[in-house]
Nucleic acid binder design. Structure first.
Length: 423
RNA sequence: GCGGUCGUGGUGAAGUUGGUCAACACACUGGAUUGUGGCUCCAGCAUUCGCGGGUUCAAGUCCCGUCGAUCGCCCCA
């Protein structure tokens, strides 16, 4: 029998878990600094949470893992925002939390796409949602939070792209303008564009196939359809970014794949070669209608999601130095006929906070020393028949190579002395 | 969903126009050195080349299929 992980999934093995822990700790620390609280929602939800009417995105329409149990349809979450908003409404957090609610999540997401470097079918995202306030300063602050995480991991080759989709009124006007503009040329465009024409003509601008087509190049810009309020809002977001010293590029073709965005949308992409064709590190935007859609009060929110696999790939590529957590304070070498004595010593060391490995495999002393080296042991305790008889141990510090034979009651004290010597 | 490349031991890999014992290096295990490692030397370590089928006297080497990885497109985190 030869069973392997399903396509697009992978194991995170013990030798790489330390980097994940460090990355997660760094993220949680930053969230805490900004006073965001973690929220954990189910990995699968009622399909309706993700599949909303008129949604034209690929993610929702062709990439979801949906399954039926009895008469119910469930879907493995392809993104985090929808579940968080569902929870926000279901638990009436708008009534019990100080607004804006500042929430973050971290966990696995599922999308049925063709796997590639930086693109798995099961992957991890970290994301934040700021719900219940609408202020351009918040949009900028949200970007700043993500930006600071990226920078903290030593990732410097990045570019912030930003655009505005305007409010409902502006977008409706723009859609009409676009439909009018593409009325004659739509038949020359790709099949996807024809669908987009009906569902969401905005996304035609995002088309990678026909992006050189005259009709797209000459398309009227959204800017002309923006009402005064939308323009002003976007300007203030940009001003806030300037104030925060975050460099950005306004990209008026940036539309984003999810249909619920209004006003600000942004994407932070890597310009590093190792990011391959999956260059987006994080992306997000503001949504005016989502809370309302789930049956809550009319409230605006803003958020983003970071792909953690991509973040880790880039942190490694750009040379971020993770701490090496592979070490031991004590490695106990037990010789023959020592019974339970080595185990008792190990327990003593551990009870006093020393990370201790107790060798239970019968091996030569030489190989036990090698093993201790491989595990980066700082101290070695040798226990043989003599030691057991006299209730003693031989303890050796690797760095200084000093070795002493002491009684059991002195062990902890001696370890403290050795560790002081190393500082 | 579309196109290209690739798949040999724990790891990195060599394998010529199909014809041996499937190199070499690292790692690992044991010994020289039976209570002291990191150096040196010696020995051991793939009935087998992702999986399945085919061509052939003969296939890791050719063909087909399949699974997976990777690159580009698409999409996006």
């Amino acid at each position: 029998m030869n069973i392997q992980t399903p396509r697009g999934t992978y194991d995170i093995l013990p030798n790489e878990i330390s980097k994940w822990h460090q990355m997660e700790t760094l993220i949680r620390t930053v969230c805490d600094l900004y006073d965001y609280k973690e929220i954990r929602t189910p990995i699968f939800e009622d399909t309706k949470v993700f599949k909303r009417e008129n949604d034209s995105s690929d993610m929702v329409n062709k990439e979801m893992y949906t399954f039926n149990m009895g008469n119910d349809s469930f879907t493995l979450r392809p993104e985090g925002t929808a579940g968080v908003i569902r929870s926000f409404v279901q638990n009436k957090l708008y009534g019990s939390m100080e607004l804006p609610a500042k929430l973050y999540y971290m966990g696995e997401m599922f999308r049925h796409e063709r796997p590639q470097k930086g693109r798995q079918r099961q992957f991890n995202q970290f994301g934040i949602e700021n719900i219940g306030a609408k202020n351009p300063i918040i949009d900028a602050e949200v970007i700043a939070l993500g930006y600071s995480i990226v920078k903290s991991l030593g990732i410097d080759s990045v570019k912030v792209l930003i655009n505005t989709l305007g409010d409902d009124e502006s977008r409706k006007k723009y859609k009409d303008v676009l439909k009018e503009h593409f009325k004659d040329s739509i038949n020359d465009l790709c099949a996807d564009c024809k669908k987009r024409y009906e569902l969401n003509p905005l996304r035609i601008l995002d088309c990678k196939i026909d992006h050189n087509h005259e009709s797209i190049k000459n398309a009227p810009s959204l800017e002309d359809s923006l009402n005064h309020e939308s323009k002003k809002y976007f300007e203030e977001v940009l001003n806030a970014l300037d104030a925060l010293d975050i460099p950005y590029e306004v990209d008026d073709k940036l539309v984003r794949g999810l249909d619920y965005y209004t006003h600000t949308v942004f994407e932070v992409i890597s310009t590093h070669k190792d990011s391959g064709s999956q260059s987006t590190i994080f992306g997000g935007g503001r949504y005016d209608n989502l809370v309302d859609y789930f049956g809550g009060p009319t409230m605006s929110g803003v958020g983003f999601a970071i792909g953690l696999e991509r973040l880790l790939i880039l942190a490694n590529s750009e040379g971020y130095e993770f701490e090496d957590e592979n070490y031991l304070d004590v490695y106990i070498i037990a010789l023959e006929n020592t019974g339970y004595f080595p185990l008792e010593i190990a327990t003593l060391c551990r009870a006093n906070g020393f990370k201790t490995e107790f060798n239970v495999v019968e091996r030569s002393m030489k190989s036990q020393f090698k093993s201790a080296d491989r595990k980066n042991a700082k101290n070695i305790i040798i226990i043989g028949e003599d030691e057991v008889k006299n209730n003693e141990v031989t303890i050796k510090n690797i760095k200084s190579k000093t070795q002493v034979k002491i009684s059991v009651t002195e062990i902890i004290n001696q370890l403290d002395v050795f560790s002081e010597g190393e500082e």
